[in-house]
Write a protein that binds this DNA or RNA. Sequence first.
DNA 1: CTTGACTCTATATCAACTAGAGGTTGTCCA
DNA 2: TGGACAACCTCTAGTTGATATAGAGTCAAG
Lengths: 132, 132
Amino acid sequence: MLRIGELAKKADCLVQTVRFYESEGLLLEPARSEGNFRLYDDAQLQRLLFIRRCRAKDMTLDEIRQLLCFRDRPELDCGEVNALVDSHIAQVRAKIKELRELERELIELRRSCDTARTARDCGILSSLGEPA
Amino acid sequence: MLRIGELAKKADCLVQTVRFYESEGLLLEPARSEGNFRLYDDAQLQRLLFIRRCRAKDMTLDEIRQLLCFRDRPELDCGEVNALVDSHIAQVRAKIKELRELERELIELRRSCDTARTARDCGILSSLGEPA
DNA sequence: CTTGACTCTATATCAACTAGAGGTTGTCCA
DNA sequence: TGGACAACCTCTAGTTGATATAGAGTCAAG
């Protein structure tokens, strides 16, 4: 049985983060020692590692909650899991598109003041002061 | 003189957002009517529009605070403004790069389960359950 | 028996809003 | 003049995914 500090180290996260996941219902309440310390077994560690791998893929805690639900019920059809990942990919793509457009706008803004001058004559400040 | 609702409409934002910017020191405290309603002149409107245009470019309130500082002091050299925009562009580019890598990872993850099966045999769930 | 590392709970903080409660002011119409 | 209703006021809490702190308790080594 692992104490919270050892568990956190194995999952490369902070002790507070583990407690936070517990409070969010992602990790089940672990056993406790006589002195009230949390004690984790390997199944709990695997569950935490699963959560951390999902977070590394930038899934929200809500999405992870859904995935854990399927992980806990092996007899269910995994179609929803696939759909969840598909929609996550779509979100990431939408964000990339948005940021590319933003990059374009910022480059244009930057071009409006290529030489240093006084703020009064700054092309950037005046661009931001006018309707797009 | 505009009341807060009219001001907000012209800047296409919520009334609460205007009050929030005031509390954050981005907008100066406006005049008040006899009945304690906020009253804005055109200069305040232009300032709010400036803030909203910066936000549309995803600048943080701290970055905007810096830009407003230059906007308020026309005699200053605008070199820092240019630098701020440059660094903002760099941040956006870094984020795009990060998201592209994430997209790649998610597509690979998605490929691990191309057909619907039970959760037990789901390639996605098992990929997320194993070390990368 | 004390030091120090670890743990416990509870609370506050971050960004940039957004939403609500509960009360006041202003305006319109009969 | 009165009553309805919109718009305004302040204050507080919630969002996301943690992170940071305070103040107290536990435990092993020296």
